[in-house]
Simulated assay, not measured.
Amino acid sequence: METPLPIKHELLDEHDFGFAKFWFYPNYIVGEFAEGADVSKEDSIGPITFIKRIYSTTVPFIYISNRKNSYSMDPMGYKDIVDMFPNLIGMAIVSDNKYRRMIATLEKMFIKKPIGVFHKLEEAYEWATQNIEELNK
């Protein structure tokens, strides 16, 4: 699978964990979960390790969730994972599926970070770029 975004920044790393694939950029992570994946907190150890290796707890980043596929994840576990990263400044959720977009709206109740919901990756990238630029002012 090719990198999903037309990001002008260098791709730092990419990794396929089986249940999901992640692309790591200087201030962005793009994640795509596999169709039918049932993701537990234990499954998240690999991606968490990669994120901490690349961004530690100081480099600000935005997570872009490209929800092309249907998968499940415990929302409370998701919140615990998000709380591990004080340098996560926001999340962008991309889906053209009405049901997945409604779920994204529910996630806003659990996660106290800016969350944008978009139809296209390019829109999410623009939103993320604006948030990173605001932080750097």
Rank of each mutant, 00 (worst) to 15 (best):
111 I>C: 05
35 E>I: 02
27 N>W: 05
47 P>K: 00
101 R>W: 01
76 M>P: 07
78 Y>K: 09
103 I>D: 10
130 Q>L: 06
48 I>N: 09
28 Y>L: 10
81 I>F: 14
106 L>G: 14
54 I>H: 09
116 G>M: 00
26 P>S: 01
97 N>F: 03
84 M>R: 04
51 I>P: 13
80 D>Q: 06
37 A>F: 05
69 N>Y: 04
19 F>C: 08
9 H>N: 04
108 K>W: 02
63 Y>Q: 06
8 K>M: 07
85 F>C: 06
82 V>Q: 15
82 V>K: 09
85 F>V: 02
84 M>P: 01
75 P>D: 00
93 I>L: 10
135 L>D: 01
72 S>K: 07
13 D>S: 15
135 L>E: 06
115 I>A: 12
28 Y>F: 11
104 A>L: 09
69 N>E: 07
2 E>G: 11
7 I>R: 08
101 R>H: 02
14 E>H: 15
101 R>E: 09
93 I>M: 07
104 A>G: 14
54 I>C: 03
73 M>C: 09
83 D>V: 03
42 E>Q: 04
128 A>Y: 04
126 E>S: 05
92 A>E: 14
96 D>W: 08
75 P>H: 00
32 E>P: 03
18 G>T: 01
92 A>L: 04
50 F>E: 08
32 E>W: 05
52 K>T: 03
52 K>P: 03
33 F>S: 15
12 L>R: 06
124 A>L: 01
128 A>P: 10
117 V>A: 06
115 I>W: 09
90 G>S: 13
55 Y>Q: 03
118 F>T: 02
79 K>Q: 08
43 D>E: 08
118 F>R: 09
117 V>R: 12
44 S>C: 08
3 T>R: 10
63 Y>C: 03
5 L>Q: 10
32 E>M: 11
108 K>M: 12
56 S>Y: 12
78 Y>D: 12
90 G>F: 14
15 H>Y: 10
128 A>R: 08
80 D>M: 10
125 Y>K: 08
80 D>P: 02
43 D>C: 04
1 M>N: 05
25 Y>L: 14
71 Y>N: 01
55 Y>C: 06
99 Y>M: 15
137 K>R: 07
121 L>E: 02
103 I>R: 04
126 E>D: 04
135 L>Y: 09
6 P>H: 13
55 Y>E: 00
